[in-house]
């Protein structure tokens, strides 16, 4: 189903090829700001809260990779969902003979944002080569697992936020909150003061999507964090599923 959505999205996007260049340019600018910031910081120091420059570049890679994944499918689909609730077009989705949560989650795909995913991945590889460390299979596996868990957590979080639209109809801007908090994920959460670190870990769970996978990659991950990340992912998935159901019941009640 995700594949079908991708194909539709791709067909749609190919009609507007100039958008690709705009997107590429935009992503490169974002990359320039991020790398420039790191360069400026590291012109004054050789480590930031225990992180080396190459590790921070890998962090930017994950930041872009995960941000890209969110921008390709999760965010546009969630925006579509909230609009569907407001306009009532969600009815069409609900009558389809498949799980509604899956349907709404891959409803819209913005294919050009894949640029960011590719750039992010390239940056991670580059940073690892520069680090000159032999990245064992074990670390790559831990990286993949924690990143998947992180994406699952972020997805669930955004689904919960969007599901609020069932009760509060005028809510278009709520995803912006996530976006501005996500920006703080450009830097390792460890450097932030405790209140902000706690917020970025548990309230707007950016830490699990960005900092933790990078820690796994550079071999600094505590086993406890790995387990915690997985448990949190499962908890978030269950909670968002439950909340989605609750919201859906509310929706049928309201439109009938």
């Amino acid at each position: 189903m995700l594949w079908l959505s991708f194909r539709l999205g791709a067909l749609n996007a190919i009609q507007y090829r100039a958008d690709f260049m705009v997107q590429l340019f935009q992503s490169l600018i974002g990359l320039g700001i991020a790398l420039g910031g790191i360069a400026v910081v590291f012109s004054q120091t050789d480590q930031l809260g225990g992180w080396r420059q190459e590790e921070l570049i890998a962090l930017i890679g994950v930041f872009m990779l995960v941000g890209g994944l969110i921008a390709v499918v999760i965010r546009p689909s969630m925006e579509q969902l909230m609009e569907g609730v407001r306009l009532g077009t969600l009815d069409f989705t609900l009558t389809k003979p498949a799980d509604a949560q899956v349907l709404v989650s891959v409803k819209r795909v913005e294919i050009w944002r894949l640029v960011e995913v590719v750039l992010g991945a390239a940056l991670i590889v580059l940073a690892m080569v520069q680090l000159g460390e032999r990245v064992s299979l074990e670390r790559v596996a831990a990286f993949a697992v924690t990143m998947l868990a992180g994406v699952a957590i972020v997805y669930s979080f955004l689904l919960i936020l969007s599901t609020l639209a069932f009760w509060l109809v005028r809510l278009e801007n709520i995803l912006v909150i996530f976006h501005s908090m996500y920006e703080a994920g450009r830097w390792p959460v460890g450097i932030y003061p405790p209140w902000l670190r706690a917020t970025l870990t548990f309230v707007v769970p950016v830490a699990f999507a960005i900092t933790v996978p990078v820690e796994a990659l550079v071999g600094r991950l505590e086993p406890a964090t790995l387990v915690g990340s997985l448990l949190l992912a499962v908890a978030f998935l269950i909670a968002s599923r439950w909340f989605w159901r609750l919201g859906l019941r509310h929706y049928t009640g309201a439109s009938a």
Partner: peptide, 8 residues
Amino acid sequence: IWLLGLLL
């Protein structure tokens, strides 16, 4: 919401 982002 815009202000929140600005302050962060």
